[in-house]
Design a protein around this nucleic acid. Structure first.
Lengths: 346, 346
DNA sequence: TTGAAAGCGCTACCAG
DNA sequence: CTGGTAGCGCTTTCAA
């Protein structure tokens, strides 16, 4: 089924069919009707590949994300999608699942598709790949790609500020032994949330103790990390989680081992996804305005008129949100060791 | 940047470049090396549109889903994606957000892209659109598209069985006044989960009372529905939710109004998404094997060798999972009205 | 207002 | 083993 057959059936040239299809030029009304009739009779659907080839481009944005399953991304996506559809853009997404070979494959896929812009929400990307991408001349905006700063357009979140607030809050409540729960890539040398924690600690209370735990970025991962924590000997009174998703996993595991939050131990999240209000107890967390990020992505990639369009870097200021997962530290005592506690209650 | 330029730089024909690119035919080693060098020096990436146009197709599956944000879908997707990537297929997804115009647009988009197969996980699709899709000669598998039975390849879940189990369980616990919480499309005339409920009730205990509540398919929607329920005068002792996501929303709202689950009211979900184990209390629900669905989708669309490939319909048998969100009904009494209860405790 | 025809970048067939 | 070349289905001048 092709233009040609439509043209034949409507007794016009392919050029004319193309015209009515795209609503360009002026086409006599009677001709237009004839063409539309042929189109629907033949159940004709233009071949989009041919179209972008001939037109030398298409209104399509690519989005690469490292973990589709984190609702954080979905919220960004929803805002981006709304803007795109409102302006005739399509979106194609690729999920890397934190696998670097998959990231390479996804980047090449997007280049091969000749997307008109690319949003990379991947938090890590090596230099060569960045160069390969940049050389393709596709407009790219990174979200939160660490200190790998080259001449890259980047949307950054001021994690320092967020972490600072969390730590302040926890110290004010008397916590001094803190566990940090991250996913693997959050423990890499370039991870900002973790280094921000280091710094905040060093600045606010160098005497505080921290221990790091890592697992997969998921509910299960959070539970894993909590299990590790409880299996170890570190008597944490508070757990700072790299994001809400893992925090909810931590919450569940603690509950399962009869450890009360926040009475026995405090837990914080990050992102303020919807789930952070629906879990039990609701999480103290840091809000990142995800829909704003989606809109900014659109503006930077598709709307040269936009005020932000030519900025090299946009910094998002997150906001601290206190809910019910944090409370005063238990008085320091031997029996306060989470492990002992868990054991005792079991 | 095109094949031609690569060819020129490597002093070969475009045909040869194409050969090394696709690893077909035999190419002398020295030539191949020369070509590869040119390719990387030029940072060349084949234009996928041109490729599928010339090749008359591409290994790409389309997936249309009505609610990207329900983790149920993500689980199906993950399995499907694994199979696809393992066999050199790409996936493009479209999200309709339950909007029927968006469904139409997405179907046309997929046809325009000439995907080699399409999975429609949308639960509703009108006849004309189905015909349009079928006429396009693209292999399509529907998941759970209601009784709109034409000559369609469909994966069905035996909801009847699942609902039957839920109802049995609830009756055994002494519940007689039941609220059903669904999203809007789950209250449509063709919805199977709801009609399955009707039937199960009629068969098992015609005297039982039911009332329906609807809201958006999301955590928020679940909370909304619970609010409606509590604002009304129906003294439900159990809430059957159309899926886990909404159930978690219900749980949260009940908790907020100090209504205990399962002591004051029982709640059930459906799907058995991961969250159903991580929420509080863990949900009594019905397991739908989502990864199996993903694999079946792949097999039916891409693997004609597969045993199921030529079946017209596959029926999935779900399994009942009892957890902690259900318990004995409160003794019937005036004070047992959820509304009264909520008010009293507030 | 419409048609003819030259590509867009690639694959695949036919020669050599 | 390699090159030439005819399309794939569409858009877009250039003429008429």
């Amino acid at each position: 089924m092709s233009l040609k057959e439509v043209a034949r059936r409507a007794h016009v040239s392919t050029a004319t069919v193309s015209r009515v299809l795209n609503g360009v030029d002026v086409v006599k009304n009677s001709t237009r009707t004839r063409v539309m009739k042929a189109i629907s009779e033949l159940n004709y659907h233009p071949n989009l590949h041919a179209r972008s080839l001939a037109a030398g481009g298409s209104r399509t944005l690519g989005v690469i994300v490292s973990n589709l399953e984190n609702p954080f991304f979905l919220d960004v996506y929803r805002a981006l999608e709304a803007d795109c559809h409102a302006h005739g853009y399509e979106i194609v997404v690729a999920n890397t699942g934190y696998r670097s070979e998959q990231l390479v494959a996804s980047v090449r896929l997007m280049i091969g598709r000749r997307v008109s812009g690319l949003a990379a929400i991947v938090s890590e990307m090596d230099h060569d790949l960045i160069r390969e991408l940049l050389d393709s001349r596709i407009p790219v905006v990174f979200y939160d790609v660490g200190p790998t700063r080259q001449n890259i357009t980047n949307i950054r979140v001021n994690y320092r500020k967020g972490v600072e607030r969390i730590v302040e809050h926890l110290f004010a409540l008397g916590h001094a032994k803190i566990a940090f729960v991250g996913h693997h890539s959050a423990l890499g040398p370039i991870d900002e949330r973790r280094s921000a924690l280091f710094e905040a600690l060093r600045r606010q209370r160098p005497s505080a103790e921290v221990e790091f735990f890592a697992a997969e970025d998921s509910l299960e991962g959070g539970a894993d990390a909590a299990r590790q924590l409880l299996a170890g000997r570190f008597p944490a009174t508070a757990v700072i989680c790299v994001n809400d998703l893992m925090a909810v996993g931590v919450l569940k595991q603690l509950r399962e081992q009869r450890i009360r939050v926040p009475e026995d131990i405090s837990v914080t999240g990050f992102d303020n996804i919807t789930l952070s209000r629906f879990c039990f107890p609701p999480l103290t967390t840091v809000d990142i305005p995800r829909d704003r990020i989606g809109h900014i992505l659109y503006a930077m990639l598709c709307d040269p008129e936009a005020a932000i369009a030519d900025q090299r870097e946009v910094v998002i200021q997150p906001e601290f949100v206190i809910r019910e997962s944090t409370g005063p530290a238990r008085p320091a005592a031997r029996a306060s060791d989470p492990v002992a506690l868990a054991a005792a209650k079991r």
